[in-house]
């Protein structure tokens, strides 16, 4: 069986690229874990769509204040320096280029940076939330994703098959096997798990990986 990173480990790796003082939006689900792995000495300021900058971790059970929640409708806490604002200001921060990083989940990513992460097709009730806004405006738009689907099919493709969230928006992919940048409409391999050959990685990727320099080892602690 191919070794691969857990979602927690992918979140750890993504956290290593966040600079001190960066303004960061973390998507609902796995990306939320990035907040737990800020390197010592660095402090990011987290933004949530429903109008908070600089919120803290979840409160203890029973201590929830339901006027103090994140975009996933989970209770959070205040920290020194927290700010509240209304939804139009919140999305001005998003679209206006004020966020440094947005880290999201993905169903599919294409080599041209197209992202599909909001709909798996016409069945059921469609729901988009803030995903289509978040992919525009942040200086870096990164995704955390398994490299392949549960059936072993590539999620990194030449073109997305599922409905798009945004066009040409993704700049970096933290997958369960590799760190890949999107540059000039192509996938550029930066890091890969040491146990995996380039050929093996390419066979699980739906578009060509450019390798302008030897990829670094993707090493993540056991967490």
């Amino acid at each position: 069986m191919t070794p691969k990173l857990t979602p927690t480990q992918m979140a750890w790796r993504a956290a290593q690229d966040i600079a001190d003082g960066a303004y960061v939006n973390l998507g609902i689900g796995f990306p939320e874990m990035v907040a737990r792995f800020q390197p010592p000495g660095r402090q990011a300021i987290f933004h949530t769509e429903n109008g908070i900058l600089g919120f803290g971790e979840a409160p203890a059970a029973g201590q929830e204040d339901w006027d103090l929640i994140n975009a996933g409708k989970k209770a959070v806490t205040l920290k020194p320096g927290t700010a509240f604002f209304h939804h139009a200001d919140s999305f001005a921060m998003v679209r206006g280029g004020h966020l440094d990083v947005a880290i999201l989940g993905a169903y599919e990513v294409a080599e041209n940076g197209d992202l599909a992460n909001w709909s798996t097709g016409p069945k059921g009730v469609p729901a988009v939330g803030g995903a289509m806004d978040l992919v525009h405006g942040a200086k870096r738009v990164a995704v955390i994703t398994d490299h392949v689907t549960k059936d072993g099919k590539p999620k990194l493709l030449k073109r997305c098959n599922l409905p798009l969230t945004g066009v040409g928006c993704v700049t970096r992919i933290y997958s369960s096997l590799a760190v890949i940048d999107v540059e000039g409409g192509r996938f550029v391999l930066r890091e890969k798990l040491p146990a995996l050959s380039v050929d093996e990685l390419q066979s699980m990727t739906g578009a060509e990986l450019l390798i302008p320099a030897p990829p670094a080892d993707l090493t993540v602690p056991e967490i």
């Binding site: 769509e49 209304h86 939804h87 139009a88 919140s90 999305f91 998003v94 679209r95 009730v125 469609p126 729901a127 988009v128 939330g129 803030g130 995903a131 289509m132 806004d133």
Partner: peptide
Amino acid sequence: LELVPQGTLAERIR
């Protein structure tokens, strides 16, 4: 259902 991205919904109302 009229589905609107969240930031677009906020800005349309504003």
